[in-house]
Structures are given as C-alpha cells and as structure tokens.
Design a protein around this nucleic acid. Sequence first.
DNA 1: ATCAACTTAACGAACGTTCAACAAGTAGAA
DNA 2: TTCTACTTGTTGAACGTTCGTTAAGTTGAT
Lengths: 194, 194
Amino acid sequence: MTDTRSLILDTAARLFAEQGYVAISMRDVARAAGMTQANLYYHFRDKDQMINDTLAHLFASRIASLDEVLETHLADGDELERFVRWMVKLLAEDIVFARLLHRELLDGDAGRLANLAQAIFLRPFTLFTEIVSAQGRRSDPRPLALSAIALIIGQILVLPLMPLLAGNAYDVNNPDPMVTQILAMLRPALSEQS
Amino acid sequence: MTDTRSLILDTAARLFAEQGYVAISMRDVARAAGMTQANLYYHFRDKDQMINDTLAHLFASRIASLDEVLETHLADGDELERFVRWMVKLLAEDIVFARLLHRELLDGDAGRLANLAQAIFLRPFTLFTEIVSAQGRRSDPRPLALSAIALIIGQILVLPLMPLLAGNAYDVNNPDPMVTQILAMLRPALSEQS
DNA sequence: ATCAACTTAACGAACGTTCAACAAGTAGAA
DNA sequence: TTCTACTTGTTGAACGTTCGTTAAGTTGAT
C-alpha cells in the first residue's frame, strides 16, 4: 500500500523535526508508525533515502499552499501583507515544517540546499522581488527580499527566547501581532528610495 | 592540566558546531583532540556534561567582546551601527559560535535556553532597547529589539541560500554590505513613531 | 611514594542493515 | 472451480559495527 509509505513519511517528519535525523533511529520511526524496522527497508533503500523522501514529501505538500496565494496575486489590495501573513502562518502554525526547514538550513549539504532553494524559497523570493519592484524602487530588490525572508525566519527561530527576554510571547495560534511587527519593519524599508 | 580541558572544549565546540551533538561521538572528540576517549571521562562526568561545559566555555568567551562595545557605549557617534556591526561580525566571522547558537535555539531544552538568553542575549537585547528608547519612541521598544536580533540571526541563517537565490553572496570576510543592508531596514523602523 | 593525567581493554546497549520466512492476494491453466 | 505460480507487504531474528561508559593499570612529576 502507498498508504503505509505516507504513514512512514509523516511519522518520520514529526520525529525528525523534534529531535533531528541522527537522534531518531529506524527503530524509533518503525515503533511510532506501528511496524517493524525491517519493513522500512521494503519502502526505502536506506535511512538517507528515507530522510530525502521525507523532506521531499513534506516540502512539496507545504509549498502547494502558496499557489492559492499566487492565484489571487494581482487581484486585491495589499500583496505585501498577504505574502507576509502566508509565510508567517506557514512557519508559526506548522512546527514540523518550520523545524525541518531550520535543520536543513543548518545541516543540509549543497544538494539538499539547492533542492530547498528551488522547492521552497524560489517562488516566495521571486514574488517578493516583484512586490518590491512594483513599489517603484530603482535599486536591486533582491537584498531586501532576502532580508524579508531572513526577518520572518529569524522571528520564528527566536520565538522561544521571547518569554525569557521580552516577558510576553506571541501566541502561536494568532500570528497577527507578529505579522504586524514584521510589516512595521518592511513597509518603511520598502518605501525608502536609495 | 587545565590546558587539556580547554583543548577538549575547543575541539568539541568545533565538531559539535559542524555536525551536531548526536552525530559526534566521544571517540570523534578524543581523536580530534589527540587522546583516548577514556581520558575525556577524567575531565567530564559524561557526554551531557561535556556538551554543557562546551557551550558555557564558548559563550562566555564570545560575549566578553561585547564589553568592549559597551565601554564606549555612550562615547561617540552611532550606537546603532556599532551594535549591529558587532553582532554581525560576531556571527559572520565565528562560524562555530553561530552554528552552536542556532543548534541551541533549535534543540536546547528549557534550562539551556534560559542560560542562552541570560548569557548571550540579555545584554544585547537591553542595549538595543535603550538605543531604541533614546530615539524618542514612545511605544514598547522590546518587539523592535527582538526583530532586530531576529533579522541579524535570520540573515546569517539564510546566508547559504544567497548564491542560490540572489546570485551573489555576501563576503564572510567583509560584513559591511550586510551591516548596511540591516541598518537600511532598522533605521526607518526606528524613526517611525507609532 | 603519592597523586594527577592518561591509556588499554572491555562491557552491554543501540545502531543500520540484511535475509529467510510468511500471510494475503492475484492471475492463468486445468 | 480448484490447483498452481507468482507478487506484495510484512515480520522475527540476526549480522557486524559503533555507541557511551567504566575498571584497572601505566606514566611522570613532585
């Protein structure tokens, strides 16, 4: 059954996100998925293959939600806000996705990083450069686009520090304050002419 | 010798930064430090203790450089630029520090995160809130301070994506363009009244 | 002769991986 | 329709290796 394969991939994604690829053994994945470790080798050549397939599976499913954003791309009002809200929600609500993304940024080899850039970041990056250019900025929009992505990813990464530093944390279930804060930084930078 | 202890800690920091705590065995550390794995247990109770001591050792030495920045705190010109440049240089030039910092943000338990916040982030965070407040802003400076830290950390984290997306990468040995880019985002946000 | 620093050698547990076996289904020939 | 051959998905048991850790012994300086 292709059912079993998906079950394994979802289980592995959850465990890998929590503890990392090295800390999670094939036995861990098998136990959490309710089967024997030997069966994993029926569905995947080895652990590396399983990791790669897990990432491909997860990233493909998550990036699909960007299509909905892109469909209404030129339609109504504030593209910037819609884009930021989509990306913040994606990262804040889907902790498995966010953590595996960070793990890849930290430990992915050149090939996996290239996949990541192409599968996940290329379209948001392009979208943002278009938004920036549409504001009438003359200079290269790409550093600003990367900064925007960096700001959003950074916000998610330092999230556990918030209650320790600022006293109050953002509510994961309500991304609005974080979106507002990020927009408050992006908008002035956008309208600056250089 | 206390020499050996430092050698172990520096070696462990390098290896842990590259591959992570789980992927690096006591044998790996011992071999790289030129001794037997058993000798590690003369200097550290177990692997967990060695990890904790490694982090404490590294973070203590790195945060010390902030003192130099703080000494000239109120002296001359642009505090914001000096602070950003210090933090970017710290993260961009010291890849071991930067990577272990990210690993802790990703995998550190509550206790280690509390240590991290206190040892590394509290003073830069406080410093930045003071800088923000000195600009005459009325609103809570803490979200902006956290965003600034998030922006800098995020920039470092997405650095390997730059050649894949923007075509050109920042030069690690010359942090000026990144500092300029970050300041270009921070300054307008700073002068905004909310 | 003592003690701090280090090595040699081993322990049991956990690791990734393999392989023969097996249950359940499917298809074709009788 | 029943027997046979074959495929698919899964298990139980084991393999060799590496893991963290420890006990006992060695070395060299004081």
